[in-house]
Computed example of a mutant assay.
Amino acid sequence: NKMEALADNGNGNYAYIDTILEARKVLVEEMGGTLLTIAKDVKLQVEFNPAKVKGYRLVGYENRMLNDEDFDDDTKDAGEMGAGHRVTALYEIIPADSAAEVGSTDLKYQQSQVVESDEWLNIKIRYKDPDQDQSKLLSLAVDSSQESHITSESFDFASGVAEFGMLLRDSQFIGNGSYENIYGRIVGLSSAKTDPYKAEFLSLVEMLME
């Protein structure tokens, strides 16, 4: 994608506008965040507790992955965040008590040790202020008190969009995913009736169901 490459190299943004609705989204609703950068070289690192999770996979972001050692390296370029922008990262996980098998690597000089903890994962965010070259670090542990078996409408929609992308790419990880599953998950959301962008997405799903 040449537009993406240009935007990445110039620390900019790009958009594909094909409808009035998309033009309003890009040029009106999101323009403030596009023009006003509040953080640069933003990096996200998630570490799962092996006592809770024995396997995981980040869904998407294949062209945004960094090596582990690059997280603390301030010379490595990363993404910019504008005012009001949000980032969603979805992980597919295998719980530690699952019967599913996960491949492992035998280490000669290192031994892994599971630390007993009620925490599920630790999130670290590193970023720079727009006018600074030294990054700042934020860290947050997520424990069982924040666990919920009830998903929000935003999560349901995001998971549907992710599944949609995996189907389009014929992903090897799609499992029993289908356009019918996506439609059934999203059509009942109250916001699907009031949000024009979600309604537009549903119409795309319906087209591919036919």
Rank of each mutant, 00 (worst) to 15 (best):
K43G: 03
V53Y: 05
V142H: 00
E180Y: 04
Y183R: 04
M209N: 10
G10F: 07
L137R: 11
F201D: 01
G165F: 06
V28N: 08
D106A: 10
S159Y: 11
D73S: 13
P50Y: 06
T37P: 02
G160Q: 01
Q146A: 10
V87M: 12
Q45S: 10
L208A: 05
L58V: 07
S203H: 13
I150S: 11
L36A: 09
F157N: 01
K43L: 06
N1F: 13
I94T: 03
E180W: 05
D73A: 15
I174V: 14
S159P: 00
I20W: 11
L44Y: 11
L35Q: 15
L21Q: 12
N181A: 06
E22R: 09
N13F: 15
K124A: 06
A23I: 02
A100I: 13
F71N: 00
D156I: 11
G177W: 04
G160P: 01
K128G: 05
L167F: 00
M3K: 12
D70K: 02
T105R: 09
S98I: 07
L44I: 08
S152C: 04
D77W: 04
E92G: 05
T75L: 01
A158T: 04
V26L: 05
E180M: 01
N181C: 06
N67E: 14
T194C: 12
T194I: 10
D8L: 06
D131N: 11
L138W: 15
A5R: 12
A5E: 15
E147F: 13
G82F: 00
L6Q: 10
L27T: 11
Y127W: 09
Y109L: 11
M81Y: 08
A5N: 14
K2A: 11
I38Q: 03
G60K: 03
E119I: 11
R126Q: 01
D195A: 02
Y56S: 13
H149E: 13
G10D: 02
L189C: 01
L189Y: 00
Y183P: 03
I17W: 06
G60M: 03
T19G: 02
V115Q: 09
K108A: 01
A15K: 07
V42Q: 00
R64N: 15
N11D: 08
S203Y: 09
T19N: 07
R24K: 15
Q172I: 13
N67T: 09
F164K: 05
Q113F: 10
I186Y: 01
T151D: 15
A89F: 08
L90Y: 02
A199C: 08
S171Y: 09
T34W: 03
K40R: 07
E80K: 14
F164V: 01
